[in-house]
Simulated scan of single mutants.
Amino acid sequence: MTNAHDVLLDASPWVKRFALSIPKEGSVLDLACGGGRNAALLASLGYSVLAVDQDINAIQQWSDSLIHPRQENLEGETWPLQGLQFAGIVVTNYLYRPFLEQLPKMLVDGGVLIYETFAEGNAEFGKPSNPNFLLKPAELLGLAASSGLKVIAYEDIYLDQPKPAMVQRICAVKGHLKGHLKGRIPLQFHG
Rank of each mutant, 00 (worst) to 15 (best):
L100Q: 10
S48N: 13
L159K: 03
P164H: 12
W79N: 09
P98K: 07
H5S: 13
N3I: 15
G35C: 09
F125S: 02
L100E: 07
Y47W: 10
A43K: 00
I185N: 08
K24N: 13
Q54D: 15
I170E: 02
N122F: 07
A123E: 03
K174A: 04
G83N: 11
K16V: 03
S147Y: 01
V108A: 10
H190Q: 15
Q102V: 12
Y115C: 08
P131Q: 08
P164N: 14
W14Y: 01
L141W: 03
R184W: 12
L135E: 09
D6M: 11
L84C: 13
K105H: 09
K24W: 12
S12C: 04
L107K: 02
F189D: 14
G126R: 03
N38C: 06
V52S: 12
R97I: 11
E101D: 08
V173C: 02
S63C: 08
V7H: 15
E124F: 06
A172Q: 09
T92D: 02
L42M: 03
N130G: 11
R37H: 14
F18Y: 06
V173D: 03
G148Q: 02
Q61I: 15
S44G: 02
R17Q: 12
E155F: 08
R97Y: 10
G126W: 00
A144W: 01
L134N: 03
G179A: 14
G46K: 05
P137L: 00
T78H: 14
L103W: 01
T78D: 14
P104T: 00
V28I: 04
E124Y: 08
P186I: 14
A172C: 06
Y115W: 11
G34Q: 12
A172Y: 06
A32V: 11
L66E: 09
